[in-house]
């Protein structure tokens, strides 16, 4: 038997495990292996090697999954704290503050007019102005606190 035939058989033996052989190639290989002890041994060795590789025993480190789960949960908590939603709330609060600053003279005059119309003492309508300004910050604080409480409850 020529060396070319053995080389071809060896190539097919490997190819069978990587790609599919055509039915014709498969038949040719089976016929060759039936007659050639050396190539049959080659095939046997490869099968044995693959079988040992597939069934190789590996020990997992102790508590690998639970330690990883804990780390992932802690990281998730950190990410939540810095989530885009929080950034959005801060952005809205900042914009609202800037808008409040820009409209402060109008708001002041509006409250002064309302105070005089309703005959309210000056401290009362000034408190109204302060409250008007504090509303966006109070809302943002409330949302953030509520959000934290919700996350804490979910992780318990």
């Amino acid at each position: 038997m020529s060396n070319d035939l053995h080389d071809r058989a060896k190539e097919f033996i490997a190819r069978r495990h990587v790609e599919a052989l055509t039915p014709a190639d498969q038949r040719w290989l089976n016929d060759h292996l039936a007659d050639c002890e050396s190539c049959a041994t080659e095939q046997h060795q490869l099968r044995e090697s693959l079988s040992a590789f597939r069934t190789m025993h590996i020990d997992l480190p102790r508590n690998l999954a639970s330690r990883t789960q804990l780390r992932v949960r802690m990281r998730a908590e950190e990410l939540r704290e810095h989530s885009p939603v929080n950034r959005l709330i801060w952005a809205v609060a900042a914009m609202s503050w800037m808008f409040g600053l820009a409209t402060a003279p109008l708001v002041w005059r509006g409250f002064a007019w309302l105070g005089s119309e309703l005959h309210l003492p000056k401290p009362v309508w000034i408190s109204g102005v302060v409250l008007w300004w504090a509303v966006p910050a109070l809302v943002a604080t409330g949302i953030i606190l509520f959000g934290h409480k919700g996350h804490a409850g979910a992780s318990e």
Binding site: A14, Q45, S49, L50
Partner: peptide, 14 residues
Amino acid sequence: RLYRGLDAMKNAMQ
């Protein structure tokens, strides 16, 4: 890589 790997593994195990 698979062909070379198979060859290397078989030789190494032998």
